[in-house]
């Protein structure tokens, strides 16, 4: 649990019944809504892209009130995000979940903005540079999950805004913008 101190938790996180999946539909819907928002908010501020359902994810347990989400509840909340297009199961067994705290479309827009900000409208950049280069430092692209980046790139490629070309190894895979 590193550098998480600045995250402000909502009040419901301290109310025990929110850790049990509610049987009554209306109550459950509200519960799921609150958890969805919390998960997205948290992942966004902490730059988390993948949640393992059995992992010791800080949101899944509140040690102060001694409550922990059941597997069923975790799956229900993440599934709700998946059905909204805010997340995606990474395996059939639903053990890992990829969180889109920006939708793919928004990631694509961020990439285009990145290209504009760095005068790359017609330029070439490697994937490594986007993820860890000096240009992306301090931007949301820094450390972006590879799968999510690929999705956004594919979307832009379909729109003809860039071309992805393979290098000799995965490390020097690059893209050429044509914005």
């Amino acid at each position: 649990m590193q550098k998480l101190r600045e995250f402000k938790l909502p009040n419901f996180f301290n109310y025990p019944p929110y850790f049990t999946l509610q049987p009554v539909r209306d109550t459950r819907e509200k519960q799921i809504q609150l958890w969805k928002e919390l998960i997205i908010d948290y992942c966004k501020t902490q730059k988390i892209f993948v949640i393992g359902i059995e992992d010791e994810f800080p949101l899944f347990t509140n040690t102060v009130i001694e409550r922990s989400l059941t597997h069923e509840a975790r799956e229900a909340f993440l599934s709700a995000l998946v059905s909204e297009g805010r997340a995606e199961w990474m395996d059939k067994g639903r053990r890992k979940c990829l969180i889109f705290w920006h939708r793919i479309q928004d990631w694509a827009d961020i990439l285009l903005q990145f290209a504009k900000d760095n005068g790359l409208e017609d330029g070439v950049v490697t994937i490594e540079e986007i993820r860890f280069g000096t240009e992306s430092q301090g931007t949301e692209l820094q450390g972006i999950d590879r799968t999510i980046l690929n999705r956004a790139l594919k979307l832009l490629e379909q729109k003809g805004k860039l071309v992805v070309f393979k290098g000799t190894s995965t490390d020097d895979e690059g893209i050429k913008f044509s914005v």
Binding site: R5, L9, N11, F12, Y15, P16, P17, N62, V64, I65
Partner: peptide, 20 residues
């Protein structure tokens, strides 16, 4: 099983963790 009643113990007045 505990039955909680938000109307008698308002969620806004809970004390617990503020941050992780």
């Amino acid at each position: 099983r505990r039955y909680w009643f938000p109307c008698v113990s308002p969620i806004s007045s809970l004390t617990g963790t503020d941050s992780l």
